[in-house]
Write a protein that binds this DNA or RNA. Sequence first.
DNA 1: TTGAAAGCGCTAACAA
DNA 2: TTGTTAGCGCTTTCAA
Lengths: 336, 336
Amino acid sequence: MANVRLQDVADLAGVSMKTVSNVVRAYPHVSPQMRSRVESAIAELGYRPNASARRLATGRTGMLSLAFSDVGLPYFAELARIIAHQATERGYRLLLEQTDGTLESERAIVSTREAGLVDGVIFQPSRMPSVEIAKHREDVPLVLLGEGPAPLSVDHVMMDNEAAAIEATNHLLALGRRRIGFLGHEEFHQSVTSMQRLTGYQIALDAAGVSVDMSLVIPSAAIRAKDAADAVRRALEDGRRFDGLVCRDDLAAIGALRALHEHGLRVPEDVAVVGWDDISMASFTHPSLTTVAPDTARIAATALDMLEERIGGYSGLGRHRIVGHSLMVRESAPAS
Amino acid sequence: MANVRLQDVADLAGVSMKTVSNVVRAYPHVSPQMRSRVESAIAELGYRPNASARRLATGRTGMLSLAFSDVGLPYFAELARIIAHQATERGYRLLLEQTDGTLESERAIVSTREAGLVDGVIFQPSRMPSVEIAKHREDVPLVLLGEGPAPLSVDHVMMDNEAAAIEATNHLLALGRRRIGFLGHEEFHQSVTSMQRLTGYQIALDAAGVSVDMSLVIPSAAIRAKDAADAVRRALEDGRRFDGLVCRDDLAAIGALRALHEHGLRVPEDVAVVGWDDISMASFTHPSLTTVAPDTARIAATALDMLEERIGGYSGLGRHRIVGHSLMVRESAPAS
DNA sequence: TTGAAAGCGCTAACAA
DNA sequence: TTGTTAGCGCTTTCAA
């Protein structure tokens, strides 16, 4: 019962394995009577093809791995959701790999210890330097997500962080805010993502003739609402005052809302806040969050397109695709 | 380069495949000089074992699949995070399967069309009736999560929803609330989860001598903050009034906070709110959420324990394990 | 259109 | 301790 093989079906149906295989794989040139004969044998025995054997024979696994730091972070969870959907539509299954943002785990992702596990990898690094990624083994197709400076040899999908940060900052400037802070970048080992967003923030302030006050650039211990809230609390207790806040991500923004509220500061009246990622919770915070919304569906589709091309044998230089974004204007920083 | 085989390593090292295999799999009885000879051959050729071939030979895939409706829901994302971690520690990789709560996808989960894909399945059904699950094929170990009435033949990990719902409701009663509503169960096709929570709610009210007002039992179109907010808005516009709200989950609670705020109702002064799941966002809503916290780490560990036992050959009747929970008391329904 | 047989790369039982 | 070899179950040329 447990182990019905292709051969068993062939025996029962009185045909060869090849014929059964043709039926199983919906190969068109099989006569109807042969097909039904085989099909009833399959049904009778409860045959199911063995995935491992098929994979060994074809060399394709039908699996992709999706690697990033932590599915517990809403942005990644929502990204995983959409990538999983699209992968399923394309006939792939998705393997989930969490790196917790450690260099060690990230290394394990790019230097696959096993061959033939997955057909391709979608990877959003948090720590790994570009040069190291470049040395990754060529044999498993790889697409990078996120804003790190990807090596030339590897495909990459990203959004224009700097441009979006400029828009976000300009939005606050247009509201008449002049003491605009930045919240939530890593304290040490700044990720490229944070750097780019910070850069955009600075460019926008410079362009508006507003000088950057370094005391308003508030790092957070980790990418979590709690750490961001703590950081804002300390800044406020420290006497620092701002009327606008560009946040590295929505979690930071949510932490900020909390800390500002505790200090009796109103959002957006006293401090206007812009988040980043447009996680689904952003519409339900109080006040709801104005936030930079990356086109996640596009990110997923582009990554999968490129990955499938690589799987199909394409071996040109790495392609770097920029996907769009928009600023979702909500209560925390309303339209001016 | 691409395809270095075990045999190639054996040839280069001048040993047999068996010896190479022994080295690769860290089999203890290999002489040191043999080992180092083989290891340098492996390094020279850049050999990596082929997972598919190994799986075909051993019959084990080292993969587990985790199936539930939607990783985009914070509870599932946080559950996936912890299960993925624990699975990794135990040497498994995790395949993510989203069912979107459709019966069709759920059927696909239990009636695996392919053999040899994963060693076991952890599945939280949303729609599938117990009897149907009972008919699942025996050949792939299965552990069920969540509160559905699991068939006797299948392992199951759950929390005591009814008891927790009673506690949650009692907490509101202890606050002196008497017009207590329930929010967020499915409007049609109620899930067992919702039913059990509703039952607990009703039991607690009955025990307190408070009659249940059916107009305060407010369904939501889907498990989303938005739908819950809409439902509460409609109820309020309808003139229904309540001073306490037991929510099916934190998303419903978050939606409720939003709608209540829009109507000028204060939480907890006018309406005390209890959520369910203790998603990480629950500490950062405004006000923060009092919520039922399932012991998710225990759920994961218990499920993996039972799954590994099944994989190891255990074939007794289904075991039903209850894991603990607690009520996290925060601002939305403070201690009395 | 269908059949026969040679792999796919590895493991493990059995021998040496 | 190491070597030989027969599978694991399927796909896929090549023939028929």
